[in-house]
Write a protein that binds this DNA or RNA. Structure first.
Length: 421
RNA sequence: GUGGCUGUGGUGAAGCGGUUAACACACUGGAUUGUGGCUCCAGCAUUCGUGGGUUCAAUCCCCACCAGUCACCCCA
């Protein structure tokens, strides 16, 4: 137990952090391109925020939250997603006063108590975007484009974008009733889950993977047939924008998001080869959330990308960048007399901005040369007792094998010139 | 939370109810005393996820737990 990370968590080791940095850099580049500013919120929040924000009857809230009481008797929850927190910060710091439209992005750990499997962890990382304060369908289109461009920039292909509208508080109740009416006499045939969904959230029945439920829901009214005028307009304008931007999408009237705050636009980007956890990105519009959290009615859209899944997809498509961590110099010290002068030299190299390392274990020259080789050092700087006396060192080019003796006073500059040209 | 499969050294793996647990890679050291990448040699699991049980005997059989994996579920 002492030597095992908690279930569903993983260490990101030095040999793979480079992949994460690559993804994170792509995130920052894209967000800069689209004018989204980074926001960092706490890893935990008051439990109440998620109850209100995500919805008390959602699976995430009902059975997946890491909730505990802190020493001040507050109920605290490790964030299972970041939209509610972003909205909280938006209200707390009155960001709405800065601009009519706030475009934010975040990268960070989220926590859900799920059963781990490939692409699903208890601590996982999301990159997400929130545009607060705008109702224009062009903003929905913009963030979808942002998500698509992000994934494309990483090199991913074979992505499927599904799109739907889940309506608003005006038209969804109407649809809900029609759906209940449709399922009323089929209730006995539905799976137990769906029978409880019938009352609580009949839209989710359409989403059920159970074959029998799928069969029974054939011919069910589609939400898109029941949208109010406003939602309908919004949805069709969104589609126009996407088409204008040359984005391929597929309408999926069964697409339902699991978080209660969604209104109008809902979308999902899938990478099918990932198997059961193939949703790489998902999001939509949540026009009611800001008000639900105590602010003025404020329209908003956002999405989140699962970074572990992106990484898995990159692996599958062999798109991971080649990580090289070569360095400028490796200082080889021979004998006890040379240790301190070598260390001094190492410090000087680093002061000059040259990446350098040395062995601290007092190993043989051969072993040190091997290390220099493995560290992909461009130069080895060899310092033995003889050189110390003459106050010089041997500079060896590891690629060509050429080497020359050089006085210590010139060495740093010489090496700098060699490396930086 | 449910079900299936799996669990041998740093990694990939072979193995079998019975003395010393293959092999490869990695790692460490060495091949005339101060030179890497190739080659050669040597070292590297008192132990087979953990804890019980069956047996004269278990890494190989049984149970529990833990972990991984796949599916359900959920979602990013």
């Amino acid at each position: 137990m002492l030597t095992n990370a908690p279930r569903g968590t993983r260490d990101i080791l030095p040999d793979t952090v480079g992949y994460w940095l690559h993804i994170e850099k792509t995130v920052r580049d894209i967000c800069a391109l689209y004018g989204y500013k980074e926001i960092r919120t706490p890893v935990f929040e008051h439990t109440e925020l998620f109850l209100r924000g995500i919805g008390e009857t959602t699976d995430v809230v009902e059975k997946e939250m890491y909730t505990f009481v802190d020493r001040g008797e507050r109920s605290i929850t490790l964030r299972p997603e970041n939209t509610a927190a972003a909205v909280r910060a938006y209200l707390e710091h009155k960001l709405y006063a800065d601009a009519a439209l706030n475009k934010l992005f975040y990268i960070g750990s989220m926590f859900r108590y799920d059963r781990p499997q490939a692409g699903r962890y208890r601590e996982f990382h999301q990159f997400g975007v929130e545009a607060l304060g705008g109702s224009n369908p062009a903003i929905d289109a913009e963030i979808i484009l942002l998500a698509v461009q992000f994934l494309k920039q990483l090199g991913l292909s074979e992505l499927e974008l599904s799109l739907n509208s889940v309506g608003c508080p005006n038209c969804r109740p109407v649809y809900r009733e029609r759906l209940q009416a449709f399922f009323k006499e089929k209730l006995d045939g539905l799976c137990p889950d769906c029978r409880s969904r019938y009352e609580r959230n009949p839209l989710r029945i359409l989403d059920c993977k159970n074959e029998r439920c799928q069969e029974l829901s054939v011919g069910a009214p589609a939400i898109t047939e029941c949208l109010c005028g406003e939602c309908q307009d919004h949805f069709s304008q969104l589609q126009e924008c996407l088409t204008a931007a040359d984005v391929q999408f597929q309408l999926d009237p069964r697409l339902v998001r699991g978080l209660d705050y969604y209104t109008k636009t809902a979308f999902e980007i899938k990478y099918a080869p990932l198997g059961a956890q193939s949703a790489v990105a998902g999001g939509g519009r949540y026009d009611g959330l800001v008000e639900e959290c105590g602010g003025n009615a404020t329209p908003a859209v956002g999405f989140a990308v699962g970074l572990e899944r992106v990484l898995l997809a990159l692996e599958k498509q062999q798109l991971l960048p080649v990580l090289s961590d070569s360095m400028d110099a490796f200082v080889v010290a021979l004998g006890t007399e040379a240790q301190t002068p070598a260390f001094k030299l190492l410090c000087k190299l680093r002061e000059k901005g040259l990446t350098a390392n040395m062995d601290f274990a007092g190993r043989s020259m051969k072993a040190q040369m091997k290390q220099a080789n493995k560290a992909q050092a461009r130069f080895a700087v060899i310092l033995g007792e003889e050189e110390v006396k003459e106050s010089c060192a041997v500079l060896k080019n590891m690629q060509t094998g050429e080497q020359e003796k050089i006085s210590l006073s010139e060495l740093v500059n010489k090496l700098y010139a060699e490396v930086k040209d």
